[in-house]
């Protein structure tokens, strides 16, 4: 489990942390590269997982309460 994660991480970092010039940011600015390409879907999913599983949180805070004790 954790090994897969490390392999992915190392192979990405190994492809070099290069300086990215402002004009090269076009790819990073694409919608599909966003942390959350569909915010509404993302909020719904987070709410479902947080209510129906034993964990919560991750990339931010907030999102309000829920009667899902």
């Amino acid at each position: 489990m954790k090994n897969i994660f490390y392999i992915i991480l190392i192979s990405i970092v190994a492809s070099a942390c290069t300086t990215v010039n402002p004009w090269e940011r076009g790819i990073l600015a694409k919608t599909e590269m966003a942390w959350e390409p569909d915010p509404l879907m993302g909020q719904l999913q987070e709410h479902v997982y947080f209510s129906k599983e034993g964990s919560n949180g991750g990339y931010g805070a907030g999102g309000g309460g829920c009667g899902c004790n």
Binding site: P22, W23, R25, G26, A29, K30, T31
Partner: peptide, 11 residues
Amino acid sequence: NKNGIGVDAET
């Protein structure tokens, strides 16, 4: 292409 393309901040 009727959807055009996205450009970066400087452009």
